[in-house]
């Protein structure tokens, strides 16, 4: 018998010997939050994200690119990687005025330019599917235009967040968006702040393997 069948047989037999067992009912009501309106959700999001060093700016749908340019200049970033063919990427490319800071757009697979990515890319901009207020978590489903490493390898990650797409809790997100029913993407992410560690004597240090800075632009 192969390992698979042996393990399964043992499990089926074990349960049968015990005459099966009925688990208690799962009551999810404890996860419910009192109804939070948009303002409250935004407030909670900021409350949860700020202590873990997420940088949050609120801006408008038409002028976010101006704020972004200012932040890029203030932080002294050498370049900015943007997604290919996304609406926000194209918009930014059309309106970009910082001549000394090139916008990087890449169509080739990441491993073909890994060296450059790991050594030279200073920052990246991605969109998001929304955010979870309770825990201050951005929801990202990477796409061919905005691959997984965009939110992972460059030292600074800028994220656009539509203020109409805030959920109260993870439970609500999964239910409302029908994640289970509609199927999951190859990679789905919740990102709550910049990368960090406390592995050296409980002392927090930011930017261990992922981005040192996470900058959220909330579009109102």
């Amino acid at each position: 018998m192969n390992a698979r069948d042996a393990i399964l047989q043992r499990l089926y037999q074990g349960r049968e010997q015990q005459g099966g067992f009925e688990p208690p009912a799962s009551d999810f009501s404890v996860l419910q939050r009192p109804h939070w309106n948009k303002t409250k959700k935004l407030e909670r999001f900021v409350q949860a994200m700020s202590p873990v060093h997420g940088e949050i700016h609120s801006t408008s749908r038409d002028n976010w690119h101006l704020l972004l340019q200012q932040l890029v200049r203030d932080k002294g970033l050498r370049n900015l990687w943007i997604g290919n063919g996304t609406p926000h990427g194209s918009f930014l490319a059309d309106h970009w005025q910082l001549e000394q800071v090139p916008l990087l757009q890449r169509t080739q697979p990441v491993n073909e330019w890994k060296d450059e990515l790991f050594n030279d890319v200073a920052a990246a901009l991605t969109g998001s599917l929304g955010a979870i207020a309770e825990t201050g978590s951005l929801i990202l489903w990477p796409t061919p235009a905005e691959p997984r490493v965009m939110s992972l390898v460059p030292p600074v990650h800028f994220v656009l967040l539509d203020s109409d797409r805030l959920y109260a809790t993870l439970h609500e997100t999964i239910q409302q968006e029908g994640w289970a029913k509609n199927g999951m993407p190859t990679n789905a992410l919740l990102i709550s702040g910049p990368s960090k560690t406390a592995d050296i004597e409980q002392t927090l240090a930011y930017g261990v393997h992922g981005p040192r800075e996470l900058v959220v632009l909330v579009l109102e």
Binding site: G183, N187, A188, S192, G193, P194
Partner: peptide, 19 residues
């Protein structure tokens, strides 16, 4: 309240994906 990353993997790279 949550870790920095919650990483949900449901498959290998699809043909049009870049990583």
């Amino acid at each position: 309240h949550i870790t920095t990353y919650v990483n949900m993997i449901s498959g290998p790279r699809k043909t049009d994906e870049k990583d």
